[in-house]
Simulated assay, not measured.
Amino acid sequence: MQRIKCRVAELREYVDTIWHVALTPLQEVNFKPGQYLLVVMSDSDKRPFSIANSPTRDGVLELQIGATPENAYAGQVLARMREQGEIEVELAAGKAFLRDSSPRPLILMAGGTGFSYARSILESLIANGSKRPVFLYWGVRQAHWLYEQAEMERWAASYEPLTFIPVVQEPEADWAGRSGLVHKAIMDDFVSLHDYDIYVAGRFEMAGAAREEFKLLGAEPERIFGDAYEFI
């Protein structure tokens, strides 16, 4: 993997506890859609974050970081970026990258800031003019954490292959969309998952439950991709 320095070009809060980070790498970088980088805090402390943009956008590495007050793991990374204005990263890591040679339609399932993983894949499909149908399901606990909902709705309006379905686990009274668990929403919408490539990002327990239940609808295990599956 490459180890490179990056300048912190942008650091702003999307919504409460979720941050957008734009890094400018100081040399050329190579990665595949859906891979992640490691923020180097020390040689023995390297912290993974999904890259949120497509490789088709040169000169930028975008991250979407959830950092609640009790989450020192992410908070310390943001603090170093603020204080130093630069950060070292290693990339690219992850085996759950987009299989762009596959002709199969795609289902992208993201929980919380796992959306960044799906976003990289989706942006690459759009940039390369893919005609493969793609269904993006984004699950969050509460609707205000759909921090790029408006942008995804614009993408769905302009990119015909895309269907975007946000799912809120604990909806308020004014939420008019889908509710419940995001993987259950997928199972409600598809009679069979046999013919799909499925990409999953989110909490390990969510990813594990989704894989087991998707198999019940005919999903082929070797066509379910997610970095969580390296660890569970």
Score class of each variant (00 low, 15 high):
195 D>R: 06
95 K>Y: 10
122 L>D: 00
104 R>K: 13
151 E>C: 14
166 P>L: 09
74 A>W: 04
149 Q>G: 08
62 E>Q: 03
84 Q>M: 14
82 R>T: 07
183 H>A: 12
101 S>E: 15
89 V>N: 01
123 E>P: 01
183 H>G: 09
83 E>M: 13
176 A>G: 13
138 W>G: 01
201 A>L: 09
72 A>E: 11
41 M>K: 11
9 A>Q: 12
28 E>M: 15
112 G>A: 08
58 D>S: 05
214 F>T: 02
120 S>E: 03
10 E>T: 10
217 L>D: 06
111 G>N: 04
83 E>R: 15
127 A>K: 02
136 L>I: 05
179 S>Q: 11
211 R>S: 12
196 Y>D: 03
183 H>Q: 15
108 L>K: 03
164 F>D: 00
28 E>T: 15
34 G>Q: 05
36 Y>M: 00
221 P>A: 04
201 A>S: 14
138 W>P: 05
17 T>F: 12
195 D>E: 10
167 V>K: 01
31 F>E: 02
42 S>M: 08
22 A>T: 05
40 V>C: 13
81 M>K: 01
128 N>L: 11
210 A>I: 11
107 I>F: 02
5 K>S: 14
124 S>M: 05
228 A>K: 06
224 I>G: 01
30 N>S: 10
98 L>I: 07
107 I>Y: 00
102 S>R: 06
4 I>P: 00
226 G>H: 02
5 K>C: 15
23 L>H: 01
77 V>I: 13
65 I>K: 00
13 E>A: 11
24 T>F: 03
30 N>H: 14
154 R>I: 14
156 A>G: 13
140 V>F: 02
101 S>Q: 13
102 S>I: 07
121 I>M: 10
47 R>A: 03
43 D>G: 14
223 R>F: 09
108 L>G: 02
56 T>P: 07
203 R>V: 08
149 Q>E: 11
103 P>N: 13
196 Y>Q: 04
29 V>E: 03
21 V>M: 01
108 L>I: 06
12 R>M: 13
175 W>I: 04
185 A>P: 07
56 T>W: 11
174 D>C: 08
155 W>Q: 15
109 M>C: 14
165 I>N: 14
68 T>L: 11
146 L>A: 13
129 G>V: 11
71 N>P: 03
113 T>Y: 04
13 E>T: 06
59 G>N: 11
191 V>F: 08
228 A>I: 13
77 V>Q: 05
135 F>K: 10
166 P>T: 11
